[in-house]
């Protein structure tokens, strides 16, 4: 293994991703707008009763965050796949693990992190009790990172396909089940006045496992897609 040192390589990859994203600021806002739109739909669908909304708020917020992450993941590799950047990346001597991690990290910085930061706003709109806000933010902070990692596996496998959009949901949503259970569980526990620590610890465990393993699956997926394309 030779070539450029690893840390500068990772930061260069990350810088490139973020730079490209910041050239299109509206696309960064899209997941947040989606989040707000769907949050608006729920009171319209289930009624404006504050008590009912408060009861459903943890689940609603988590499901919407999950869908927003999934939608953003779908296009994660698309442009780089189409213009050949991905092929170049596969040919570099640096480990693919790191470049995959840089994609995921950029994806999380542009979707998961902003979602976490604005979530309290939407939580207040849905009448979530204020004591649950720290648990909501912490669970989203850890959970969206897992969602980004797992979602990127689906994105890598489907990037070469014409009709990837619905397929990635079918592939990935089953794997989102544990994150949803523990994420919304943490918020529900906190809303009832209990400590959300157990759920947050489990989410942290899932994140460690995902960081360790997911980039390998992403790398394998990218190799398959580029070979087939």
């Amino acid at each position: 293994m030779s070539g450029a040192p690893l840390l500068p390589f990772l930061s260069a990859c990350l810088r490139r991703q973020l730079l490209l994203a910041f050239r299109r600021p509206l696309e960064i806002a899209n997941p947040l707008l989606f989040f707000l739109l769907v949050v608006m739909l729920f009171p319209l669908g289930i009624g404006p009763d504050p008590r009912q909304l408060a009861e459903f708020a943890p689940g609603i917020l988590w499901i919407v965050a999950l869908l927003a992450t999934l939608l953003a993941a779908e296009s994660l590799f698309r442009v780089d796949f189409e213009d050949g950047t991905l092929e170049q990346l596969l040919l570099t001597p640096q480990p693919l693990y790191l470049s995959c991690l840089s994609y995921v990290l950029a994806h999380w910085l542009l979707t998961g992190l902003p979602l976490t930061l604005v979530a309290p706003l939407f939580a207040v709109m849905l009448q979530l009790p204020p004591p649950a806000l720290p648990a909501l933010m912490l669970s989203l902070l850890l959970g969206t990172a897992v969602l980004s990692l797992v979602g990127s596996i689906g994105a890598a496998l489907t990037v070469g396909l014409k009709r990837g959009g619905l397929l990635i949901s079918l592939l990935i949503i089953p794997f989102y089940v544990p994150v949803l259970i523990f994420g919304s569980g943490a918020v529900q526990f906190a809303a009832l006045g209990n400590s959300a620590q157990p759920q947050l610890l489990v989410l942290g465990g899932m994140l460690s496992l995902a960081i360790a393993l997911a980039p390998f699956a992403i790398a394998a997926g990218l190799r398959i897609s580029v070979d087939a394309g």
Partner: peptide, 20 residues
Amino acid sequence: VLSLVGTVNIPIIYKSVDWW
């Protein structure tokens, strides 16, 4: 690749659904 990812995930999914 997908089915291997599933193999890692199935125990996690089962345990979390049990807990839920």
